[in-house]
């Protein structure tokens, strides 16, 4: 069973090598605004007084993401600097997934992104978003299949709205529900 967690919960988690050494802790999560995925983590040193580490950890170099630690193979998984955390030239500065609107393809605005939901394990991936609706309610929206992301909004399929979950416990079934939905939705209204 896949365990989900909010991306925001990854902050402060230790980064641990398979040899059991902690080589840093997650400071910030950097999203890729062109895909909606996580691009990398910025890191801080371990301990109360240690400052930023200035070495980024790319998402693809994460060995596994768990509820208690971010696992990496060894110290070489870290980049030499943190240039990966700064936006590329083709992106407008300040663009972030957090705060952008989520809109269905048919044009209903579902809310604004407050966090991403990440599937933990050996192949961690962004599985959905936490969205604050116009009624100030927070719901978790699974994403499946092609989504379109720009700096302004995330476009999701219309079915997404029917498979939202109120908390992480129900998110797994929402993902399953969206993935296994009939191709022609019988509940047309």
């Amino acid at each position: 069973m896949t365990v989900y967690m909010r991306a925001g919960e990854i902050a402060k988690k230790p980064v641990v090598t398979l040899a059991g050494d902690d080589i840093g802790q997650v400071k910030d999560i950097v999203f890729d605004s062109s895909t909606g995925d996580i691009r990398c983590f910025t890191l801080a040193g371990r301990g109360l007084l240690s400052g930023p580490l200035h070495r980024a950890l790319l998402w693809r170099n994460v060995h596994a993401l768990g509820p208690h630690a971010v696992m990496v193979r060894d110290e070489s998984a870290l980049e030499e600097d943190d240039s990966a955390a700064t936006p590329g030239e083709d992106e407008r500065a300040g663009v972030n997934v957090l705060g952008v609107a989520v809109t269905t393809r048919s044009g209903t605005q579902l809310g604004r992104v407050t966090d991403a939901v990440v599937a933990t394990g050996r192949k961690p991936a962004v599985a959905g978003y936490e969205v604050e609706t116009a009624e100030r309610e927070r719901v978790l929206l699974p994403v499946a299949g092609p989504i379109t992301v720009s700096g302004e909004r995330i476009l999701v399929s219309d079915a997404t709205a029917q498979h939202s979950a109120g908390n992480l416990g129900g998110f797994g079934s929402a993902v399953e529900g969206l993935r296994h939905r009939p191709v022609h939705d019988p509940q047309e209204d």
């Binding site: 040899a19 059991g20 050494d21 902690d22 596994a64």
Partner: peptide, 13 residues
């Protein structure tokens, strides 16, 4: 057992 370091004892999942 996979490794023992300063932070933890790592085992296979």
């Amino acid at each position: 057992l996979v490794g023992v370091g300063s932070y933890a004892v790592v085992v296979t999942a």
